[in-house]
């Protein structure tokens, strides 16, 4: 009786209750991070040890489904973003008498920042959602258990080809998005605003170097890794039934989106520091 009263007091104490909630969240977060770490390790291990004929065949199928079929949507998004950039930036540049230089800001913005991030966000929605839903449905309908019973490692069979395809195709799609983004900007500047071709491309070229292109592609590589690993993890750990799959898709997209933004910031700072180390007399690329 006395024990019951003590435990009731413990539960109703707001400070203890608050600490218990914080503690619960912390334990949960550490568990999820540990579990995700193990999952990531098994993927990396699978990439280096588990590639066989079937995995490679599946890799090409996934590259087609993730990459080739995503080209239209990625190009559409990239094209309009480049055009909007031109519409917004040209009047500002024109006002200070530098309308001809608008090409450089469009190219740098698209190649270094907007292209990779926008492509990654679109792919997180399109590919991440479909990967989580597909793997989640396979888990709910016992197909993943069936793979294990048939002595097939589900991570090597299902996850490794998807992660590899996403890592390869995200930079490729980013190149498509960047190219059409620059063309979208060119169309507005040259076709609508009357900037001549030579100054547009001249300043576009001066704003770029190999390292700038590399920054965008390195980011795209990591974004591909983030999208695919989070999506597959959520699919493998999804709850039961249609609701479990739906919730896993939403959580996968939200987590993927947040980690893309965080990774973009971290990579920008890291790559900028590398640039300063390599070329100390050049201005920062941030």
């Amino acid at each position: 009786m006395e024990q019951n009263q003590t435990s009731r007091r413990r539960v109703t104490n707001p400070i203890t209750g608050f600490l218990a909630v914080i503690g619960g969240w912390t334990v949960n977060a550490v568990q999820i991070m540990g579990d995700f770490g193990c999952f990531l390790f098994s993927i990396i291990y699978g990439i280096f040890t588990g590639l066989n004929r079937r995995t490679i065949r599946e890799l090409f199928i996934q590259m087609y489904e993730m990459g080739t079929l995503s080209i239209p949507v990625v190009m559409l998004g990239g094209g309009f973003i480049g055009a909007v950039l031109a519409v917004e930036a040209y009047p500002q540049f024109k006002a200070i008498g530098a309308g001809n230089r608008v090409g450089s800001v469009i190219v740098i913005s698209v190649v270094k920042q907007i292209g990779p991030v926008l492509t990654a966000v679109m792919l997180a929605g399109r590919l991440g959602g479909s990967m989580t839903a597909e793997l989640g449905t396979m888990r709910v309908t016992e197909q993943i258990d069936a793979l294990r019973v048939m002595a097939a490692d589900p991570v090597r069979t299902l996850v490794v080809p998807r992660v590899l395809a996403c890592i390869i195709m995200t930079p490729v799609l980013t190149v498509f998005s960047d190219s059409i983004g620059i063309l979208g900007g060119w169309l507005i500047c040259v076709g609508v605003e009357g900037v001549r071709n030579y100054p547009f491309w001249h300043y576009a070229q001066t704003g770029m170097d190999m390292f700038t292109v590399l920054v965008g592609l390195i980011k795209a590589f990591f974004f591909g890794l983030v999208i695919s690993t989070i999506a597959c993890y959520k699919g493998f750990r999804c709850g039961n039934g249609a609701r479990g799959v739906g919730r896993a898709c939403t959580e996968g997209f939200v987590a993927g989106f947040c980690v893309i933004l965080l990774a973009n910031f971290i990579l920008a700072v890291m790559l900028n520091n590398i640039y300063i180390m390599l070329w100390p007399n050049q201005p920062s690329i941030l």
């Binding site: 016992e142 258990d145 069936a146 019973v149 002595a151």
Partner: peptide, 13 residues
Amino acid sequence: RKRFGFLFQQSAL
């Protein structure tokens, strides 16, 4: 596992 066959409740094809 290779010595077992498993018929799943939902078939799991």
